[in-house]
Computed example of a mutant assay.
Amino acid sequence: MTSNDAREGTPGLEPWLRDILRCPVTGAVLVDGIGPDGSPELHSTDPESPLAYPVRDGIPVLLADDARPLAR
């Protein structure tokens, strides 16, 4: 992942992998997002309990304990 990728919120994952990743808590689709500090994240599209997962060194960390809630 380049610094440009981090600014745009793009984790740099292969398209086939992006298509199969899901929120481990709700099963919702994950979309690119940007965290409060400008770092890339994956955001759950679940309308009831949206969560954000960090992307560290280009690797999504899909652990419930590392997720943070998103405002609805």
Rank of each mutant, 00 (worst) to 15 (best):
I34Y: 04
D32C: 12
P50S: 08
T2M: 01
R68L: 08
L17T: 03
P40K: 12
T26E: 08
R72A: 15
A6V: 12
D46W: 07
P50T: 07
P47E: 04
P47W: 05
I34R: 15
M1Q: 10
L51P: 07
Y53L: 03
L30K: 06
G27W: 03
T45S: 09
S39K: 14
D32I: 03
A67T: 12
L51C: 12
P36T: 10
A6E: 13
L42H: 01
D57S: 13
E8Q: 14
G9F: 11
I59W: 10
L17W: 07
V29P: 00
D32S: 14
P11H: 03
D37L: 02
L17D: 02
R56G: 02
D32N: 15
G58E: 02
V61I: 14
T26R: 10
G33Q: 02
G9P: 07
W16F: 05
D66W: 08
G27F: 03
P69V: 06
V29E: 15
E8F: 11
D19T: 08
R22T: 11
A71Q: 08
L63H: 04
P40H: 10
D37T: 03
A67E: 10
G35N: 12
D37H: 03
L30H: 06
A28C: 07
L13K: 04
R22L: 12
D66M: 12
T2G: 15
A64S: 13
S3H: 08
G33I: 04
P60A: 08
A64K: 15
P47A: 05
L42G: 05
G27I: 01
P50N: 09
P40F: 11
R68S: 13
D57M: 11
R56P: 01
L42K: 02
E8H: 08
P24Y: 13
E48C: 02
E41R: 15
D5H: 14
V25F: 05
N4E: 13
E14T: 02
E41A: 11
S3F: 03
A6F: 05
I20K: 09
R56T: 14
I34Q: 09
E41G: 00
Y53V: 01
W16Q: 14
D19I: 00
D57W: 04
S39F: 02
G33R: 04
P40G: 09
S3I: 04
Y53K: 01
T10S: 11
A71D: 14
L62Q: 04
G12K: 04
P54Q: 06
S44C: 07
D66I: 00
S39Y: 01
P24W: 12
E48I: 04
S49M: 12
I20Y: 08
G35C: 00
L62F: 10
P15E: 14
T45V: 09
D66N: 07
E48M: 06
A52T: 04
V25M: 11
W16E: 15
L21P: 05
D57F: 09
T45K: 09
V61E: 01
G12L: 11
A64Q: 13
L63A: 14
T2N: 13
E48V: 11
G58F: 08
